[in-house]
């Protein structure tokens, strides 16, 4: 713990921020800078590692240790760092192209291992830095520079993907909702193991308004299904009820509130969180927001280092001379 209280300013680097005006990344950055002092962790013990894409410029703007690496590989680099340096707090900053396309393999394996990384996926459903091609999160039929007749690909649902990859902490939040974003960061930071946060993030240049359904005052209350542990899952108009092993949406007008599902993020069965993740269509009209899943499983780095300690405790520290002289040896006089 640090003896001085740090402020937002302490976490702001001297670099000029160079995202497009109106980019959702600004508010995520500002929220992060304001949130970090709350952790009480010295700046030098915090590391941000990113891949490639607009959001991956993030580390340059934080006065912590940071690495802007190569496309898709941040979780791999961050894993090596986290495993060898369990004393550090490591954030991974990535986007929907970086994490779900070129780096898909690293994302799923970091999650399944439960490496102690806080992974923030900025999802703008488009390739911004390469100037507007469709991404693996773009809705089918999307007209972009590389799909002038409409994209044919079925998109990934990042939340479903993370749950399928055995993630222990999975959440969704929105760039412009500072309060919700801060609270999500707070919960993720308290989680031991991988924390995966999908942040809906507006790209004003290539995919403007992609998330208006859940951001506009007229529609958001009716579209966002609030996931609050221990409370009924509902928006202003719809609620979630059980339908056998499944979940389904019902208009609040047609249901008694006591029938609504009470959210349990700690449910060990991932099929519950998965079912939640499938409620929203790509038009976002019923979008669960908040923490889908938060379960306890040992972190990877902790296990690696515990295993080393146990081996050293039971066998004693390695003796190089003994090692080199092991096996069949003979002496020449």
């Amino acid at each position: 713990m640090t003896d001085v209280t740090l402020t937002k300013k302490d976490f702001t680097s001297d670099q000029e921020v160079r995202w497009c005006p109106g980019c959702g990344d600004y508010s995520v950055l500002s929220t992060m800078q304001a949130f970090l002092p709350e952790l009480g962790i010295p700046r030098e013990n915090i590391v941000f590692i990113s891949g490639i894409g607009c959001s991956s410029r993030f580390p340059y703007y934080l006065n912590t240790f940071g690495m802007h690496s190569i496309h898709g590989r941040a979780p791999a680099i961050a894993s090596g760092l986290a495993i060898t340096r369990p004393d550090l707090t490591v954030f991974v900053i990535t986007g929907d192209g970086d994490a779900l396309s070129i780096g898909g393999n690293h994302l799923i394996h970091a999650l399944r291992r439960n490496v102690e990384l806080k992974i923030l996926l900025f999802n703008n459903r488009i390739y911004g830095l390469t100037k507007g091609q469709y991404s693996p999160a773009s809705e089918q039929g999307k007209i972009t520079k590389s799909t002038p007749y409409g994209s044919l690909d079925t998109p990934f649902n990042p939340i479903s993907l993370a749950i399928g990859a055995e993630a222990t902490f999975v959440a969704r939040t929105i760039d412009s909702d500072r309060k919700h974003l801060s609270e999500t960061l707070r919960q993720a930071s308290a989680h031991k193991g991988s924390a995966f946060i999908e942040i809906y993030q507006n790209c004003p240049i290539f995919n403007d308004g992609a998330f208006d359904q859940v951001k506009d005052n007229e529609t958001k209350e009716g579209s966002l299904l609030q996931l609050i542990h221990g409370q009924a899952i509902k928006s202003s108009t719809y609620g979630v009820v059980r339908d056998g092993a499944r979940l389904k949406l019902v208009e609040l007008a047609n249901v008694d509130e006591s029938e609504l599902v009470i959210h349990d993020a700690s449910d060990p069965d991932p099929s519950y969180a998965f079912a939640l993740s499938r409620l929203s269509g790509s038009a976002l009209e019923h979008t669960p927001i908040g923490i889908f899943r938060s379960v306890v499983r040992p972190g990877y780095s902790a296990m690696v280092n515990d295993q080393l300690s146990e081996i050293i405790a039971s066998q004693g520290a390695g003796d190089l001379e003994k090692l080199l002289n092991s096996g069949d040896t003979w002496v020449v006089d």
């Binding site: 090596g80 760092l81 495993i83 550090l88 690293h106």
Partner: peptide, 16 residues
């Protein structure tokens, strides 16, 4: 998980 992550994790370890 693959050759890229193998060297990537090694580089991350070196960075630390």
């Amino acid at each position: 998980e693959d050759e890229i992550a193998a060297v990537g994790s090694a580089l991350g370890a070196s960075y630390g």
